[in-house]
Design a protein around this nucleic acid. Structure first.
Lengths: 363, 363
DNA sequence: ATGAAAGCGCTAACAT
DNA sequence: ATGTTAGCGCTTTCAT
């Protein structure tokens, strides 16, 4: 690279430059403790002088590893506050780098378009309040693995009932999931998850401390494991505080409009003083409903969201929200990937991390 | 993969299965037109039956390509509405896939922490209203290139005055920039950018149509090329409509708090009826200021942001915002990457795309 | 249209 | 502690 014309140096170039054999250069890089200090230094100087970096393809071919971790990205959902991906992605890239890996992004091919209300779990989908693009949830994984393009996968969309997990496990594909294997309690792959129940408990306790008694839940359909987990934090703590939950719960799509309509319905009949929501998107819908009634979140009623999205941070008034420790999630995931690839036995197959509450003006 | 024990099939396995030589299998994959239809079909059946995918490392070693495109990700900035990355990233992954490539993510190593107001352009930084993590803007590129891990880069943070572009060009690194080479008008690398001036013009015309006459600008520091480009859309159209701009402009950090303070200051002395902002983050700050004065965006005053972030979409009232055609940006970038790697001459070194205006309740 | 030979750059296994 | 040999799986000549 130092001079554009000459081709990149190889092990052989460095070997000649340092006056040693190719193997010694290889050892200097991979097992420096084998070299006599003087030789090591001579080789390192040559490496430095030539600007040598070992060719990845050659190394990958020989070692049968790529030091790449595959991550399938789903389309960003419009009209939703769910911007977790940015934060998680960077944390993941940083963690993988510290472990000597890189992240390879891929995507599924779209198999069609779906309009209506999403209910099933057999295909991935991105619901944006109406239209969704359907993708085969397994598309892309197989080819990357067979071609040895990646060593392992990080699977993030397991919350839909993760059909991937079953398939990947059957094929003994190395992967770590962000999300518990809800539908398969006996699954034995490593996973990292955030305790949604604990997060909502934090929210409820916070609201009770603030004097609220009629606290409503606005969440997702009954079929959603994640949704029910978060909701259980509400029922648990409400029961513990001996507060009513009857008719104070609404379940539906993860859309702004459902949050809005649910809030209107609840306010019409049940007069809650606070809303706890399964997502920031729903919370934004609740805020919209309050606004439409001339009410103000934080003064007239309290609202708490889930995800601590950028929208929660910058909207007015600032939305109190449960924050997932994504940085820590990424670190734990990469640790598991390391264990997997080193064939170290996985002691605990899963790890649940505790979220925190970002308190802002709406509560 | 079909049976966990047996190792992955290779060209040789397929050749035996199909009763041809290894070379013929290779041809079937890479130059199918060379084979007689009957032979081709026989080979394809064998490929299918064995679940064969060519080993990437071996192919990469031989062809000296990786079919990987490197993208450096910067940390997600907290307390900012700037969630462009999600949308852009997915578009890029999709476009690259269609072109037979994958995206490899990497990150710079942090060299320190910075507190205060960002002004320089010599290092990358992420300003989050106070503390920033500094990274060497070139870190990571060189090693990936020397080791042939990637074929080319997509460089996204060129708006800071892109020191990368100069360095990468000097080394004749193949890369395409998202963002014009503002500081180096004679740079000859391919780039794709969005016309910020045109976006703001759209916003101003929209507001004038709505009857506004005192339209204020809330933007970034004078040193920001991007910021000045967007601002010129305001001055241009204001002049064209023969509307005043004097003392109606504020420039500062890209933070919610600056937007808020700027809005207060402008309202105290200049009584604007509308605000056009260089970013959604600033617009959110303006909305905060309005709220603090008991005013309502969309009823009492108009506000327009830039980026069409998720926050703009879900906040109440919905924020009118300039939307960048990121999907198209990604497509154009990948087209340039293809030209670059195929050594096709680059006809036009840069391409500017027109944004649109997403009109919502604040205007 | 198909096959044989060579070699990309590296590291594992073995020898010294 | 260093050198020698072989081969990972593929594609690029070149020959048939």
């Amino acid at each position: 690279m130092s001079s554009p014309a000459e081709s990149a140096p190889t092990l052989a170039t460095v070997a000649v430059e340092a006056g040693v054999s190719r193997q010694t250069v290889s050892n200097a890089l991979n097992s420096p403790e084998l070299l006599r200090p003087a030789t090591l230094e001579r080789v390192q100087e040559a490496v430095e002088r030539l600007g040598y970096s070992p060719n990845r393809a050659a190394r990958n071919l020989r070692t049968r590893t790529s030091h790449l971790i595959g991550l399938r990205v789903e389309p960003a959902v419009e009209d939703s506050a769910n911007a977790l991906m940015d934060r998680f992605l960077h944390s993941l890239v940083e963690s993988t780098r510290d472990a000597g890996y890189h992240v390879l992004l891929f995507t599924g091919t779209f198999t069609g378009t779906f309009t209506g209300t999403f209910t099933g779990t057999e295909t991935g989908s991105d619901v944006s309040g109406g239209e969704a693009r359907l993708t085969d949830p397994l598309d892309g994984y197989e080819e990357l693995l067979r071609s040895a393009a990646v060593d392992a996968f990080v699977v993030t969309d397991t919350y839909r009932g993760n059909p991937q997990a079953v398939w990947l496990q059957q094929r003994s594909v190395p992967f770590v999931a962000f999300g518990r294997p809800w539908a398969e309690p006996h699954a034995r792959h490593p996973w990292v998850d955030v305790d949604g129940q604990a997060g909502v408990q934090l929210a409820v306790d916070h609201l009770v401390e603030r004097g609220h008694q009629r606290i409503a839940w606005v969440g997702w359909h009954k079929g959603s494991y994640l949704g029910e987990d978060r909701r259980s934090g509400w029922t648990d703590r409400m029961d513990a505080h001996e507060l009513p939950t009857t008719r104070l719960s609404a379940r539906g799509d993860d859309t702004l409009d459902f949050g809005r309509r649910a809030a209107h319905a609840l306010m019409d009949s049940e007069h809650p003083t606070a809303f706890v929501c399964a997502s920031d998107t729903l919370a934004m819908g609740v805020m919209r409903a309050l606004d439409e009634r001339g009410l103000r979140a934080g003064r007239d009623l309290a609202v708490v969201g889930f995800d601590d999205s950028l929208a929660a941070q910058v909207c007015t008034p600032g939305l109190t929200s449960v924050r997932q420790p994504l940085e820590q999630v990424a670190v734990e995931i990469v640790r598991y990937v390391g264990d997997l690839l080193a064939h170290r036995p996985i002691q605990t197959p899963g790890r649940t991390l505790a979220p925190t509450l970002s308190v802002r003006a709406t509560s």
